[in-house]
Design a protein around this nucleic acid. Structure first.
Lengths: 340, 340
DNA sequence: GGAGGATCTGTGAGCGCTCACAGAATAAGA
DNA sequence: TCTTATTCTGTGAGCGCTCACAGATCCTCC
């Protein structure tokens, strides 16, 4: 319990050196885990750090190393989606934790309009960040292109097909979609439809592909409807269309829990009972899933872990220059509840 | 269009000085908006800044000024709430924008468990942030106490009663709650209940008080039920209780849109028609409001603006030492839709 | 015309750290 | 024993900026 009446004067590397009876250089070496430090010096320094309560001054370090100590998290979504989408929040949280553990700052850049694109690109060119994580990159994303041009270490969350050289972390959407659809099949559903979304991203396309995989010959184009967003509203809209086309369907795979919730809403209004008349499954295992009546069967997506893993990958590249090649897939899990 | 094949060497204050034919000191003065700079020098410097594409090196500035250039956003909520609550997301966004406009970094500290409290307190003591914004502070919050002890400029979003010396930004929950309840009354509802929440915070208490204000003598204790969280689930729970107590009620004021959505759910299940049999109003104007069937009448809360305003207040205190006294109230607005 | 006050400008030092280099200590081999 | 690696340590310079100080220039007024 130290006295904290006034803002404490922070100890510097100099104080540590004096306390340990060595020079600044040696302290710096210990701090950075460099070799060529004697056991005795190391121990003395570690004790001294503890004693004087030293913590590194990031600004000084960044100035000396000509780095920023910051990583950008670039989210290319309207503000509304950013606020609403639980996955994005979880990714942000995961990234934030991983970065601050490593003493890095997270700078979040939200790109809402196209005007923002220019602003962000020039910001990135200014050397304010040592690396970047791009969430839900679109095909032909100008930001991703700029990042490559600037040689800024970058990791994508989700994997668009046009930037295969960049490392990315994602989930196996296709397999997960196949798995959950298969269980829909194995519980006896015969006329299964899908509400697909975001077909301009890998997540959307792969979920559709997985659905197709599971149905095999039974796949029927007419039972797939595409909606623009992973949203409740889109779910309602899609479900209405689908019901018009095929009033007799008995299973629905929705590309996200929010969509599934919208679908459930419309189905109930149409007098269908869930899961008795129609089985519904979603994707994400977000709070939507539990909010539904009945609770949604869905695929658990490790959103926080995705963010954390992406952070670790950029850090690897920033600090050791090691670029992970290709895509890292994190495991998903089917969660079976009451809606199917 | 400059060549960007390799990471561009950033221009320094020195380059600007050379280009403008003045000294570093004068450039620094212009950069910091200090007086005593001749018109001609100022113009030359501004032109030079443009020409060489100078942007200030934050690390160097922070080192020289002995500041961190960062403001903490402290959210004392479980991770789940952080991810789900649209208000928190919007506050974060507003804060982030305001801070980065002023060249400050936002550091988000999420306190989930009590273990985090210690970690955060010691982090704050380390001089890593120049100011702090505390969202949804509880009564007797240990973090708030630590912040005062450390003399770190702090602004609260929402106003707990035990920290009246700290400036805060909030909305007039009481008046807003009264207004929306009054419109419920004026449209002919006679038996109006309330689902209250979070009575350990000003937001919760004031909404209840406003409700009471609007009903006057007609206020009936038995028609108020308290639930633990501003959540959909809590809304369902509360509504069930209320229906048991008073199956004949014809109006509901829910302390948040999420609660209202839960209430609507239960009411529909119970065969009530909305708004014909029961009128329902919420609070927040979050995405929940539009998600409801029928769309929710509610109070629009300027969450983004709350965050931005809080940021401006801390910045005022950090930069000019001016502490705003008391609470800043931002205006709300009743949004009349179809649920009442 | 010169004193005294404003207004403007340049310079050195220093913020806390890292990095390259040189020098000291130790170990190993002839 | 002396040489030559190898391991370890200290020192100076410099990252880009701000701040205090001193000096220069310009007015104003007696």
């Amino acid at each position: 319990m130290s006295e904290t009446r006034t803002r404490p004067k922070r100890a510097t590397i100099f104080d540590v050196a004096a306390e340990a009876g060595v020079s600044r250089g040696t302290v710096s070496r210990v701090l950075n885990g460099e070799p060529y430090v004697s056991q005795s010096a190391r121990e003395a320094i570690e004790a001294a750090i503890d004693k004087v309560g030293y913590v590194r001054n990031t600004a000084a370090r960044n100035l000396a190393t000509q780095t920023s100590g910051a990583v950008a998290l670039i989210v290319h979504e309207p503000h509304a989606v950013f606020v609403e989408d639980p996955n994005i929040g979880a990714i942000l949280l995961g990234t934030n934790t991983a970065l601050s553990d490593a003493d890095y700052q997270l700078v979040s850049l939200i790109i809402d309009s196209d005007r923002d694109t220019d602003r962000v690109v020039s910001y990135l060119g200014g050397g304010f960040v040592d690396g970047a994580i791009v969430v839900s990159a679109r095909e032909d994303d100008p930001i991703t292109a700029a990042l490559e041009r600037l040689h800024i270490p970058t990791v994508l969350v989700g994997r668009p097909e046009t930037a295969p050289e960049l490392p990315s972390v994602s989930i196996d959407n296709r397999t997960a979609a196949r798995d959950i659809t298969e269980r829909l099949v194995s519980t006896g559903r015969r006329r299964i439809g899908m509400i697909a979304a975001a077909l301009d991203r890998d997540s959307g396309r792969d979920r559709l592909a997985g659905f197709r995989d599971a149905l095999g010959d039974a796949f029927d184009d007419a039972l797939v409807v595409e909606v623009p967003l992973y949203s409740f509203h889109s779910g309602q809209e899609g479900m209405r269309q689908l019901l018009r086309r095929a009033p007799d369907l008995d299973g629905i795979f929705a590309a996200s829990d929010a969509i599934a919730a919208g679908a459930v809403d419309v189905l109930k209004e149409a007098g269908k009972r869930i899961p008795n008349d129609v089985g519904v499954v979603g994707f994400d295992d977000s709070a939507w899933a539990l909010r539904c009546q009945p609770a949604l069967s869905t695929v658990r997506q490790p959103a926080g872990a995705l963010g954390a893993r992406a952070a670790e990958l950029v850090l690897d590249e920033i600090r050791r220059g090691e670029r992970q090649r290709g895509v890292v897939l994190l495991p998903t899990e089917v969660v079976w509840r009451d809606s199917a």
